[in-house]
Write a protein that binds this DNA or RNA. Structure first.
Lengths: 249, 249
DNA sequence: AATAGCCGTTGCAAAATATGCAACGTGAGG
DNA sequence: CCTCACGTTGCATATTTTGCAACGGCTATT
């Protein structure tokens, strides 16, 4: 491990909580302010941070470039785009693409609904593990021991009356996802929205991403949503094919 | 300047061009692979990079978090949101918010058109300086010496038949922007789209951001677009007020 | 199935950088 | 105009970073 680098990246993380002065930042990593200044100067030269006025530092514009590049490098985005765009055009509902990376589920693409509606999700953001359809799809494909380990280390904050709130119930739900081949978010994440999700597989059959479709309950009841499962599965199959998956049966 | 940190950030920048092996990365910064490995291990622990299989590194998910936080820290986004959303709802056209940071113009917010249309712009991306309405608004407010310096150091790639392609013409255009109080992109950036932009001012009258509205030529001709200037200026005024600007007259 | 090659990984002595310090400069507020 | 707070600088010292040689693992070829 590199101590200087560790300190500098800690500074960047600290600036994620808002602009800070040199003094504050040197306190965070417990070094002399002249040391902190040198680190900030180097971060600034790479545009990871920038000066805001005379006294404050804040996050810099390189982060936008890098985040965009990080998204574009997720090949499954490109492979899945046509299929997801078509599902969005066909149904008019919000379609998400998410992947499981470093123990988190990240939205890596999103096609907005043509109906006016506000949703929490945003590309680059994490999806809660315990209550979203994409997370259930992704976690259900983990090897059983790993799945159990992850389920037991997760937190289960109740977000709606339907939220799953313990590991045992969650693991049972993941088992149902495995059996059915798709997942449901029965207003577990947001009260007024329900959602279905399905796996996108790679060349060796492994789940490389999840696609989901989210619908406001006022626009479609649960039965109506389930009627769209075949469309979702067809989309997931099409995207899987683009990712090199060929099913054996 | 911190050499280790500089090397590590160079690695991150290199990974913006695609996944790389340890060997490739150590070559980029001209150090022994054990040194590169140590830097990558530290970057990985902060989730700036992640391992992809056994042999490749790629950009990590911390970049999504940081980019999102970097956006949220731009206060003008929040201050301007209501006004920009209203303009978008009223007209149905794409509305952008951009700021001038570190010598670049960055889109920091965007409200998509309700009509189906594809645009280059994306939040977090840079806007070309020579041919977009937001860039003209932002650069026109620079002190004259600085404006001239920037105009003379810029490049002017021709993107359409209408693109401005030299500094002299560009400075004249910025002068017109200053006089009129708003900017126009007369299909200089994209052939089928034209665009108007206006300044959002801060408490001391300085331009802190630019708002723009982009319209396909097939939907509205140039005269029709100019007829929307009063709406745009009203939006810019409302947003400026939220940013602490009070005009003296 | 075994071997070779390639690439990632490790521990440690030597090389090199990072660090803290004291003093200075600047800007803002009283 | 003075004082205080915070950013900035140059340099000797302290500490980390570095490269090296050897090892381990994985994949491909024989």
């Amino acid at each position: 491990m590199s101590q200087s680098l560790d300190r500098a990246l800690t500074l960047v993380g600290e600036l994620a909580t808002g602009p800070k002065t040199l003094e504050e930042l040197s306190g965070v990593i417990d070094v002399h302010k002249s040391t902190a200044l040198r680190l900030l100067r180097t971060l600034e030269s790479h545009r990871f941070v920038q000066r805001e006025g005379v006294h404050h530092y804040r996050l810099g514009t390189a982060l936008f470039d890098l985040a965009n590049r990080a998204l574009e490098e997720r090949d499954v985005r490109r492979s899945a785009e046509a299929a997801l765009r078509e599902l969005n055009a066909l149904t008019g509902y919000t379609v998400h693409l998410a992947s499981y990376e470093g123990g988190e589920v990240i939205y890596i693409d999103k096609y907005d609904s043509t109906h006016p509606m506000r949703m929490y999700s945003r590309v680059g953001r994490r999806a809660p593990l315990h209550c979203t359809a994409v997370a259930k799809v992704l976690l259900s494909d983990l090897p059983e021991a790993k799945r159990r380990e992850v389920a037991e280390s997760m937190e289960y904050p109740r977000l709606t009356a339907n939220t799953i709130t313990d590991a045992t119930a969650y693991l049972a739900e993941l088992e149902r996802v495995r059996e059915r081949g798709y997942a449901m978010d029965n207003s577990e994440h947001e009260d007024f929205i329900h959602c279905i999700g399905a796996p996108i597989r790679g060349s060796r059959g492994e789940v490389v991403a999840a696609v989901s479709m989210s619908v406001p309950k006022v626009m479609l009841d649960f039965e109506g949503l389930l009627a769209l499962v075949p469309n979702l599965l067809a989309t997931a199959r099409a995207a899987s094919t683009e990712c090199g998956y060929s099913p054996r049966d």
